[in-house]
Write a protein that binds this DNA or RNA. Structure first.
Length: 558
RNA sequence: UGGGGUAUCGCCAAGUUGGUAAGGCACGGGAUUCUGAAUCCCGCAUUCGUUGGUUCGAGUCCAGCUACCCCAGCCA
């Protein structure tokens, strides 16, 4: 991670600096990334991962990976595996610190018992509906539960029997005894343990009571020695409870963890909620969680986004507390910048148009030297012959002004090869353009007598007999956006019907035949592409990562 | 009409104790170019949601107002 050693300042780092200055956390900074294993990670999680691991790195501290697996009804090992793969791929390491909230169930249980002993928790027999009714509303205080003042022994006994499995789901809960009249609804005697006879993906049937997030999280943080517990804005109201719990259980205020909230990521042309992403997958609108149009880490990876570009993106967008909507153009800029430096260049023709060089010897083949990269060097050979293909978009019979490509009677340079001139447009019986007859300037190849002739346009091309057929998948935004960059609430209505275009008959130079899935290329003058996992040597498949900036297309539009 | 937050250029976002608005993306112009790419210059907030106040001086302090976000799961 050498891309930026001095990350921009943000308010979380400022808070850490302040703490350190005040002599807090002398043991060092310790953060954590705490996903619930109930879905795949997306670019929003990447922001949190980069923040938490980045903060640790920047402060000589540590960052744990902790699965927040306190709700077995929603979680699965499938997700714990994918989450680990994604965090690793992003380039971060939790070293030997992979934890699970479920590892702490025994300790958490003891803390709950201790809370009861201190008169700060009670077993409540109200039903879920009753608890809701007793809770009050945003503007009206709640009512105290009739079970609020049970004796200590009764509470201890009931809680033990909850654990023992004596009661059915929903019959009892353990609640913190705080303040039913608090203007902060989170503090109105929140439920901290519920009964759920559900087997857990790690602890099996060992437990039938499970702690709630609000109880498990601060204590898990404290158990692991977390100093800064960074979470998103919606937990701001929960911070008083976070502190209350740690206070009530007697954790030292100078060393215990501190919760700090930041704004989650929103991206234009994208939805980020797990619910909506799941809907896209389950509704068959995309091919899966790793569909290259998805904002999931696995989707971005398959699309061809690099880990470095995602890290760079997370750094550029910054960390703050205001809700924001980041332009996806920044993400695209980040991959382009990475791939421009790191991707080898290759020629591929997406929409082939045949070109015959009438003055080129029949049967002759040359192998021309082509640079792999304009600045990094390296070369490979590309075959050249009498019959070629160029892109349909690179020829116009009646072009507009400043069209630097091929036109009747016009000249153009073929990249790495010769200058050619369009002599004749050959049509089929229906009047459709069938092929172009051109002549080439034999001395215009690199090193030749006329090589330095100034020709305005340079085209990419492919030699007909050696070109490999390829499947190329072009992508556009999955979702359309209104003028504010916002996706409609009814996001399925915003689905872009043209988000995927599959080109089955593209042609690519043969150098690429044995390429491996995951390899990045720049298709000259087209964009950046990544070899898809569906590829085989006999059927090459490429995903478009992002197109090149195109000032010509922009000028045509505007 | 309760509580918690946020408001600095089209989009993000720095602005430590008040001293006279960083940077990135986008955009516009030019140079360069065997990728209309990349690269390189240059331009891009007399103004910080708004109204007042304090001060020699306020994005930064005070007061009022407005807009937007979050909270009434035995989800996280």
């Amino acid at each position: 991670m050498a891309e930026n050693l001095t990350p921009p300042s943000n308010f979380v780092q400022n808070a850490i600096d302040e703490d350190l200055k005040n002599g807090k956390y002398t043991e060092g900074i310790h953060t954590r990334f705490p996903p619930e294993p109930n879905g795949y990670l997306h670019i929003g999680h990447a922001k949190s991962i980069c923040l938490n691991f980045g903060l640790a790195l920047a402060n000589g501290g540590k960052c744990n990976l902790r699965f927040d697996d306190t709700n077995p009804t929603k979680e699965d090992v499938e997700y714990v595996d994918s989450i680990q793969e994604d965090v690793k791929w992003l380039g971060f390491s939790w070293e030997d610190r992979k934890f699970y909230a479920s590892n702490y169930f025994p300790q958490l249980y003891e803390y709950a018992v201790e809370l009861i002993r201190r008169g700060k928790a009670y077993v409540c027999d109200l039903s879920a509906e009753q608890i809701r009714a007793y809770r009050g509303t945003l503007t009206e205080p709640g009512k105290e539960s009739p079970y609020r003042n049970r004796s200590l022994n009764e509470n201890l006994d009931l809680f033990a029997r909850m654990k023992q499995g004596e009661f059915p789901d929903g019959s009892h809960v353990l609640r913190a005894k705080i303040d039913m009249a608090s203007p902060n609804i989170t503090m109105r005697d929140p439920v901290i343990y519920r009964i759920s006879h559900t087997s857990h993906h790690r602890t099996g049937d060992e437990w039938c009571i499970y702690p709630m997030y609000d109880f498990a999280h601060p204590l898990s943080d404290a158990i692991e020695g977390i100093t800064h517990s960074v979470c998103t804005l919606e937990f701001e109201d929960h911070r008083p409870l976070y502190d209350w719990l740690l206070d009530s259980l007697g954790f030292d205020p100078t060393t215990r963890p501190r919760q700090i909230e930041f704004a989650r990521l929103n991206l234009t042309n994208t939805v980020m909620s797990k619910r909506k992403l799941r809907q896209l997958v389950e509704g068959g609108y995309v091919s899966g969680w790793d569909d290259p149009r998805m904002p999931t880490i696995s989707g971005l990876r398959r699309r061809g986004y690099t880990a470095a570009s995602i890290r760079d993106f997370c750094e550029r967008i910054g960390i703050a507390k205001s809700n924001s909507l980041v332009d996806v153009a920044i993400l695209e800029h980040c991959v382009r910048e990475d791939l421009n430096v790191n991707a080898d260049r290759v020629m591929a023709v997406l929409h082939p148009l045949k070109v015959v060089l009438t003055n080129y010897p029949v049967g002759k083949t040359e192998h021309l030297l082509a640079e792999n990269h304009p600045t990094r060097g390296g070369h490979h050979y590309v075959p050249f012959g009498r019959e070629l293909y160029i892109d349909q978009a690179d020829f116009m019979e009646d072009p507009p002004k400043k069209f630097f490509r091929l036109k009747p009677g016009g000249e153009v340079r073929l990249k790495h090869a010769y200058i050619i001139k369009c002599e004749e447009v050959v049509r089929d019986a229906a009047g459709q353009i069938q092929e172009l007859h051109c002549t080439y300037d034999p001395e215009s190849k690199a090193g030749g007598a006329t090589a330095s002739r100034k020709i305005k346009g340079t085209l990419h091309w492919v030699e007909a007999s050696s070109a490999l057929p390829a499947e190329v998948r072009l992508y556009d935004y999955l979702l359309t956006t209104d003028t504010d960059g916002e996706v409609a609430d009814d996001f399925l209505s915003a689905l872009n019907p043209k988000s995927l275009t599959v080109i089955q008959d593209a042609l690519i130079e043969p150098a690429v035949r044995w390429t491996a899935a995951g390899t990045h290329y720049q298709f000259l003058r087209e964009g950046y592409f990544c070899v898809d996992k569906d590829t085989t040597p006999d059927h090459l498949v490429f995903n478009q990562v992002v197109g090149l900036r195109d000032s010509w297309a922009k000028a045509q539009k505007g």
